[in-house]
Design a protein around this nucleic acid. Structure first.
Lengths: 214, 214
DNA sequence: CTGTTCCGGTACGCAAGAGTTCCATAAGAG
DNA sequence: CTCTTATGGAACTCTTGCGTACCGGAACAG
C-alpha cells in the first residue's frame, strides 16, 4: 500500500517544459499588452503549445494570470551585513533599482496595479510574491541600524519602508522619471540623515560625520 | 457684424447638463469597474441619456475616457505662504492626503495607471491635469525654503517631490497602507530634517552661517 | 498489442460589448 | 407653420476572444 508514493498517473505525462513556457509567455504578454490586452491564443503561439495545453493546466485566463505572477517569486534576497547601515540600505536599494529599471517585473507592474484592485488573489500574490521579501530585508537592516545607534529608536518603520520604495514605484507607474542609482542613493541618504540619531553636541568621538559627496 | 461671434448653429442645441452628466458618470464607472470594465451602456444609463448622446459628443470609448479624465482638473492650488517652510509643505501634503484618501481621484488612479502606459494621451492628461499643479506648488515652497535657508541649496528637487508624493501613491496603488495625516507629517518632517541646511546647534538668526561647500 | 492521457493545431459555439441606426419627440431659428 | 439638430430608448450589426471540441499522433503503463 505504501509503494505508490508518487501516485504516477497512467497515460502520457505532462511536458514540464510546456508548463514553464506557458507561464513565461503569459508574463511577457502581460508586460507587452496588459492584463486585458493579452490573448490566450497568443500565449499558446508564443509558448509553442496548443490552447488545450493551457486549459488543461489552468481553468481560466484569470487563473493563468495569477499562476504566472505567482511563479515570478524571485530568488531569495540576502540581507547585506557590511556593518554600515548606509551601505546595507544602499545595496538593497540598488538591487531594487536594477530589478525594476529594465527587468520583467518593471514592465509587468504597471499592468498589474489596476488588476490588483479587482482581484484580491492577484494582489496577495503580487505583494507576498515579490514585495514582502524586499520589505523584510529592508526592515532587518533598519532594525540593525537602530541597534547600532545610526537611526532613531522611535523610527516609524512603515514610513521608512514606504519612503524607500515609494519614489521608485511613483516614477515607474506615474511620472516616468528615471529609476537609477541616483534615486537609490538619494532616498538612502535622505533616510540616513532624516532619521539619524540625535547626538550630543560633542561629536568628537566619531569619525568624519560629514563625508557627504554626491 | 458683431452678432455671430458665437456662430450659433441651427437646430436644437446640445443639453449642457448632459455633457457634464456623461463625464461624471464615466468617471464614477471607471472608478468602480476600471478602464476596461465599464460599459458605455452603463454610462448612458447612469447619466440618464441615450448612447447616441454619448457618441454625438465623443468619437469612441477611449475618447470619452480621456475627455472625462481631462475634465477632472481640480481647482487652482493656492501656494501656502505662512513663512514656515515646514508648515507650507505640511499644508500641501495634508491637502493631497485628503484628496486621495477618499475622493474620486483616489479611487480613479489605480485604474488609470495601467491604461496610461498604453495611451500616451491619457498619460499626458493625467499628469498635466492634476499632478503637475501640486508638484509646481511643492516646488515653489521648496524654492522658498532654500532661499530662507531652511533647506540645502543643492537639494535635488525631483527627489524631494518624488519622496513627498511617492509614498502616498505607493500606499494607494500597491501596499494599501493608510493615507492619513501621519503620512503627510512623516514625509514632511523627513524632508525638513534630511535636507536641512547644515547650521550650528544654536538657532541663531544670522543668515550667513552656511559655509561654502563645493 | 490496448488503454489512457498527453501533444500541437484548428475550428467553432457563444457571450459580451462597441458603435450604428431608427424611432417619435423636443427645442431652437426663421 | 417648416427646417434642423438633439433627445432618450430600443434594436441592431459586427467584431473580439474565451473556452470547448475534435483531429491525428505521441508517450507512457501494463
Amino acid at each position: 500500500m505504501q509503494g505508490d508514493r508518487t501516485e504516477r498517473p497512467i497515460g502520457r505525462p505532462r511536458d514540464e517544459r510546456a508548463d514553464r513556457a506557458i507561464l513565461q509567455a503569459t508574463l511577457e504578454l502581460i508586460a507587452e499588452r496588459g492584463v486585458h490586452g493579452f490573448r490566450t491564443e497568443d500565449v499558446a503561439a508564443r509558448a509553442g503549445v496548443g490552447k488545450g495545453a493551457i486549459y488543461r493546466r489552468h481553468s481560466s485566463k484569470d487563473d493563468l494570470m495569477v499562476a504566472a505572477v505567482a511563479g515570478l517569486v524571485d530568488e531569495e534576497i540576502v540581507v547585506p551585513d557590511t556593518g554600515s547601515t548606509r551601505a546595507d540600505l544602499l545595496a538593497l536599494m540598488r538591487e531594487a533599482v536594477e530589478l525594476y529599471r529594465s527587468s520583467l517585473p518593471g514592465r509587468l507592474m504597471p499592468n498589474l496595479v489596476s488588476a490588483m484592485a479587482a482581484r484580491p488573489e492577484l494582489a496577495r500574490v503580487v505583494r507576498e510574491g515579490f514585495l514582502i521579501r524586499r520589505r523584510q530585508a529592508l526592515a532587518e537592516v533598519v532594525r540593525r541600524g537602530v541597534e547600532r545607534g545610526d537611526l532613531r529608536p522611535d523610527v516609524d518603520l512603515e514610513l521608512v519602508l514606504d519612503v524607500l520604495g515609494g519614489p521608485l514605484f511613483y516614477r515607474l507607474l506615474i511620472t516616468g522619471g528615471p529609476i537609477d542609482e541616483q534615486l537609490a542613493d538619494g532616498v538612502t541618504e535622505l533616510i540616513m540623515r532624516g532619521f539619524a540619531q540625535d547626538k550630543p553636541r560633542g561629536r568628537a568621538k566619531s569619525k568624519h560625520t560629514a563625508k557627504e559627496h554626491s
